[in-house]
Nucleic acid binder design. Structure first.
Length: 512
DNA sequence: CTTAAGAGTCATCTGTCGTACCTTCAGCTTACACATT
């Protein structure tokens, strides 16, 4: 079975003559049945690493993806490229459609779903009946970044993999420190997983870090930078309010097309703004971390941070969206000493204090065993005076100990006491971990030497020599940025190339 | 000796927070069939 020539198969199914960096190695290993953790830089075509194997393997391939929009995009893309047996299971489907797909699940060779969907009994019942010979986790850093508190179903993946017959696992991501890689392997219970890691340092990006004293100064600086030259720019904020506010203020100061984007907006508005930015109908987007995953725009020239994120991993992901075309781009970080409070509040908001665990568990006990009607998550977190994420975490831990949601009532006081201690211990470690990550982020801001080296050293042993000016500590200033932008691309072209573009709209191109 | 101005200290108050999935249902919109003028 392994005798065929992979390059021939690549051409036959996708029409490409050559693999891109890392693809062939990963596919080879996957086809030989090995578990692989692939860390490939953005824009290399990670999805091909499972799309080609799914064509070559006889059974089904399951792909876990964090965002519905990502799944829908990929399915659409594959369908228009002529791959018919692709489907995604998600909450946007109506009940009839969902039932029909579930009943004929064996007809699909590539099945996309969310980690939450895997916890659905009916879905799992149907999956178990299939022969699954590849289990893929796309954007695998979510396991480590979201799994512990925010989306705990990400920590339940190993159990699901076991249930569907322990197929080979392929985990893919663009950014993962060795620490995160280890966490991913641990959570998947696959310590022997093969790591295929490629460098992620951006040789076409210059870095600038500037201390400011106030909002007004930040605004003034952003205005200067934007006015210097019109170019696709993202501005990252840690709060929805500030994203909206600065977006409005910039509109009065800069003659460019500016909009904001965050998770609190209506679905349609989000889609519209994203599409406009993608199509060069917007110059500047003021956004929170909601904007990013699956954004594949090649000509983003500047990423400005009005606030800094809670960890370097997030920062790297955010700047990773610029300069995918390989042309020069820059990152500008603006910070004010007071900015430290915001990320600190985020940590508090997702982690319960260890000394509060005992009280919380007592209340849970009372509620679960004395309440007649079952409370939903929203009511529970309100009743316990916890944030949604804090309750998520506690709930997951109690489920793991089988103290809730596992049938018969357990009134074993000793067991509850033990669990209290265990949760306290986990929380103490999470507090230490998150505080350390934030500390690393802050010390990067103040690092007196080369910012580039300091940034990438935790991710890879050697940092390559940049093709552009290095960083503000190596003499780079935002004003020096090379920006030879052709007037907005693709807007005015002759009818032949426009027709060609329309004709090829559905054509397959591998993305991340 | 009294009083006003200014400086320093303490207590109180104000401000305010991101990331996604799922389920289920109420309420709304849209398309369409049918009856009436």
């Amino acid at each position: 079975m392994r005798n065929f020539n992979l390059k021939e198969k690549l051409y036959e199914h996708f029409g490409y003559l050559q693999f891109r960096q890392g693809q062939e190695e990963i596919i080879q290993q996957v086809l030989e049945g090995r578990d692989v953790l692939g860390i490939l830089p953005t824009g290399v075509g990670k999805s091909l690493c499972f799309q080609l194997p799914s064509k070559l393997l006889s059974g089904s391939t399951v792909v876990v993806s964090p965002l519905i929009s990502l799944m829908i995009d990929q399915v659409k893309q594959m369908k228009s490229a002529g791959f018919k047996s692709v489907v995604s299971l998600n909450s946007f489907m109506d009940h009839r459609e969902k039932r029909v797909v579930l009943e004929h699940l064996d007809q699909y060779s590539l099945i996309y779903l969310s980690p939450e969907m895997l916890q659905n009994e009916l879905v799992m019942y149907q999956l178990i009946k299939l022969h699954i010979d590849l289990f893929v986790i796309d954007e695998a850093h979510c396991i480590s970044q979201w799994g512990h508190e925010f989306r705990t179903d990400y920590l339940k993946l190993s159990r699901s993999i076991e249930q569907v017959g322990n197929p080979p696992v392929l985990a893919l991501s663009a950014t993962a420190t060795p620490e995160v890689q280890t966490d991913i392997k641990q959570q998947l219970v696959r310590p022997e997983m093969l790591s295929v890691v490629y460098p992620m340092d951006k040789v076409n990006m210059s870095f600038a870090v500037e201390e400011t004293s106030s909002h007004e100064e930040k605004l003034e600086r952003i205005t200067q930078v934007l006015s210097h030259k019109k170019a696709p720019t993202m501005i990252y904020f840690s709060s929805r309010m500030w994203a909206e506010r600065v977006s409005e203020e910039l509109k009065t100061k800069v003659d460019q097309r500016i909009a904001f984007y965050h998770g609190g907006m209506e679905q349609m508005d989000r889609l519209l703004v994203q599409q406009q930015f993608m199509n060069d109908q917007l110059d500047v987007i003021c956004c929170t971390s909601a904007f990013g995953m699956g954004v594949d725009k090649s000509n983003i020239r500047r990423v400005i941070h009005y606030h800094f994120p809670t960890e370097l991993e997030s920062f790297i992901q955010e700047i990773g969206r610029a300069g995918r075309d390989g042309k020069p781009c820059a990152s500008l970080m603006l910070y004010t000493p007071g900015d430290y409070h915001l990320p600190q509040m985020f940590i508090q908001n997702e982690l319960v204090k260890p000394e509060d665990v005992e009280g919380v568990l007592h209340s849970v006990y009372d509620i679960v065993y004395k309440q007649e009607t079952e409370l939903n998550d929203e009511e529970m977190s309100e009743e316990l005076k916890l944030s949604e994420t804090q309750w998520n975490f506690i709930k997951y831990q109690l489920e793991q100990e089988k103290l809730i949601n596992h049938g018969p009532v357990i009134r074993d006081k000793h067991k509850w006491g033990q669990t209290t201690e265990k949760i306290q211990w986990i929380l103490e470690n999470r507090w230490k971990y998150k505080s350390r990550k934030l500390q690393e982020m802050v010390s990067w801001l103040h690092h007196p030497d080369c910012k580039r080296k300091k940034l990438y050293t935790p991710f890879q042993p050697d940092t390559r020599t940049p093709e552009v000016a290095c960083c503000s500590n190596c003499g780079f200033r935002m004003e020096d940025m090379e920006l030879d932008i052709e007037p907005y691309s693709a807007t005015f072209t002759d009818w032949k190339s426009r027709l060609e573009k329309i004709f090829h709209q559905g054509a397959y191109h591998a993305t991340d």
